[in-house]
Design a protein around this nucleic acid. Sequence first.
DNA 1: TCATTTTCTGACCGCATGGCCAAAATCTAG
DNA 2: CTAGATTTTGGCCATGCGGTCAGAAAATGA
Lengths: 206, 206
Amino acid sequence: MRSENEPFGQKPRSFIEEARRAQIVGSAVAVIAEAGFAKASLARIAEHAGVSKGVISYHFAGKDELMEEVVRHSYEGAAEHVAARMEGLSTATELVRTHILAVAEHMRGHRDQIKALGEIFNNLRTADGSPRFGINGNEELYRMLEHLYRLGQAAGEFRPFDTRVMAVTHQAAVDTMFAYWVANPDHDLAAHARELADLIERACRA
Amino acid sequence: MRSENEPFGQKPRSFIEEARRAQIVGSAVAVIAEAGFAKASLARIAEHAGVSKGVISYHFAGKDELMEEVVRHSYEGAAEHVAARMEGLSTATELVRTHILAVAEHMRGHRDQIKALGEIFNNLRTADGSPRFGINGNEELYRMLEHLYRLGQAAGEFRPFDTRVMAVTHQAAVDTMFAYWVANPDHDLAAHARELADLIERACRA
DNA sequence: TCATTTTCTGACCGCATGGCCAAAATCTAG
DNA sequence: CTAGATTTTGGCCATGCGGTCAGAAAATGA
């Protein structure tokens, strides 16, 4: 099903190739954020990028690969920022709180990305009609959060609770915080994040 | 924009009309739940209902009205059940917990409905491309939850916290609980609901 | 029974989409 | 400069969509 670029990472790409891909990904983010997934056709994205439609087909295997590239790119940026903020922390309480605050802090400057991400998650389908990034696509994230929460339980910071439910709830709360902010731009994202961190801390602590 | 049936409720409908509408709504739920919103075309829904495509156009103003009817129908059922379960309770703690448990209890027997609801919320758009039931469509729900939480705060059961953040988080947690269950049918929905009720109770209590 | 209204059918329309490709343009080495 | 490779163009295609419509069929009621 996948193309043959998995075994050893991507096949090498020329400079101009990479540049075009990046440009197109940027246009895709902008168009999706502005017009919504449903109206983000290849034609519109190409127009926004100032190239002809065929160029996208030339540089990407198809619309799906382009969308996946948008997701990968946006995720990477956020993950980097969060990881940097969490480095050096030790207690689970600090780690959980920082995880929430840091991702909010990063996304505050990348509204288009988080909006596009939401659109793609909700709308992109595989050929058989099932969601391409369904809730089960969060499995990796859930495991990471579970690990964090178990750490706190082992250290005695957190009471015993079902870590899967906590992880699912945590991620849902963060995702919806962004969705609410995207729908209400004047909403105070940072304050929401702090309040949410308080809620979760209280729900967890022994 | 709307047809002329608002002022005094719906215009009267014949028996056969109501029956057909109900049948088509049922087929829409089934098709959306099975194939996803993207593949739930009028043609497929009509085929599932065993009628020709034109019948849907005859009984509904358009696809949008059909989808809205699916939402209305599913919501009504859940709201009724939840209201019945909450009747007679007095403390905010009980009310919040029961609200969560009751809706889970009801949806346990209506998987197709909750799945179709999720699909429609995530995918249905207005003509201009914006979500038909976006997060701002939850405003009524948010206000109701805020009311509940403020009740608890006034009674001294709950500590002071931002009730809007709590309401948004509460609803997100419940919605995602269902999404997780839909994606993982073996997941224990009732246990998840109890665990979630515990989380929220601890996050709230003074 | 038969005229009238309600309901249903299936073909058809215009439209937008993602993908395709031959030819043109541009870049790169030798 | 030139030949070959890379990149871009713009038109074309098949597909599936929601919606429409004239006429057939069925229900209704006098």
